[in-house]
């Protein structure tokens, strides 16, 4: 697999505050990568530095396969969070205009614009003024104009965050098709979107990379066995739960198998080291104490748990 983009020690300071504190990552050709993080983590700042809209305070951004003297921007397609067009233009005019600015010939630009508008489902509205487009239509037009010159890397900033559920579905569907054709990097604060679309994730937190890698790999590396236990509203059972939580940290046999206990109301959530031993110990305990539970479930932690853990710290 070929490397397309290499980012090294990227820093951006606004006055005293550092929005991005030394981010390094690389993107492989043909992969779809999500820049994942909570609001204010520095996702947008990072993306704007990649597109050249913002000058990095320090660090380097390297594109492989860039000929000497070639503009980095000619390999990039960029879709901002809420793209602003000229409202007095029609959708068709705008995509042709974008194509011409990327160096396509008039005929080529027109041809591409037609194809892309068809592709993003705006063929009907192509001749209408952009001023009358809905949010979802503008986002799809944004995709069309970003793709007009067949960029090597499509960069998107929160492509679906500002959309209603229908617009979201439309755009996510399009992205699923597109990712097989080009390399994609997008930022999001919604884990679900990243899981649905991406091969790789880069989780960033307060301007730093907290975790990065291929999604299946991260999933298997950070997957922990857990047991969830739901109790009935029954005083002795609840008392047992409180006692069990305390005993776990003191008792050597229990703390060897159970790593962590979280108790929320009638829910107990056990992160365990050895599933078999923990299951054994717990069921014995439940039978002995006659605990009234309504549900007992053994499974694995989800990516969401990992995300919350990484981001929440």
């Amino acid at each position: 697999m070929k490397e397309l983009l290499q980012v090294n020690g990227l820093v951006k300071a606004f006055g005293q505050a550092q929005a991005v504190k030394g981010i390094s990552f690389h993107i492989q050709e043909g992969r779809c990568t999500a820049l994942l993080g909570p609001n204010g983590a520095g996702k947008t700042t990072t993306i704007r530095m990649l597109t050249g809209l913002l000058k990095p305070t320090a660090g380097s951004i390297q594109f492989h396969g860039l000929r000497a003297g070639e503009d980095r921007r000619s390999l990039l397609g960029y879709l901002p969070q809420s793209p602003a067009f000229h409202n007095w233009m029609s959708g068709m005019e705008y995509v042709v205009y974008a194509g011409r600015l990327c160096g396509l010939s008039p005929a080529e630009a027109k041809q591409r614009a037609k194809e892309l508008l068809e592709r993003v489902g705006l063929a009907e509205a192509a001749k209408r003024r952009i001023g009358g487009y809905s949010g979802g239509m503008k986002q799809r037009l944004g995709l069309a104009q970003a793709l007009v010159h067949r960029p090597k890397l499509l960069v998107m900033d929160e492509p679906v965050s500002a959309l209603d559920p229908i617009g979201r579905r439309e755009v996510l569907g399009l992205l699923k098709e597109l990712k097989s054709e080009t390399t994609v990097l997008f930022s999001t604060h919604v884990l679900h979107d990243a899981e649905e679309l991406c091969d790789d994730v880069i989780i960033i937190r307060s301007g730093q990379v907290a975790l990065q890698g291929a999604l299946p790999q991260i999933r298997s590396e950070h997957r922990r066995p857990i047991i969830e236990l739901k109790l009935e509203e029954h005083a002795p059972s609840l008392e047992w739960a409180a006692g069990f939580e305390q005993r776990t940290s003191a008792d050597e046999r229990l703390s060897a198998t159970i790593e962590e206990i979280e108790r929320q109301g009638t829910m107990l959530r056990l992160t365990v080291k050895d599933m078999d031993k923990a299951r054994q110990a717990l069921t014995e305990e439940l039978a002995k104490e006659k605990v009234r539970f309504s549900r007992l479930e053994a499974g694995y932690s989800s990516l969401e748990d990992l995300f919350m853990k990484v981001v929440g710290e």
């Binding site: 809209l53 921007r73 809420s82 793209p83 602003a84 974008a98 600015l101 944004g142 104009q145």
Partner: peptide, 13 residues
């Protein structure tokens, strides 16, 4: 201010 300039300036212009 509207952001229309940033869409143009990310193109090789």
């Amino acid at each position: 201010n509207s952001g229309a300039a940033s869409l143009v300036l990310v193109k090789p212009v």
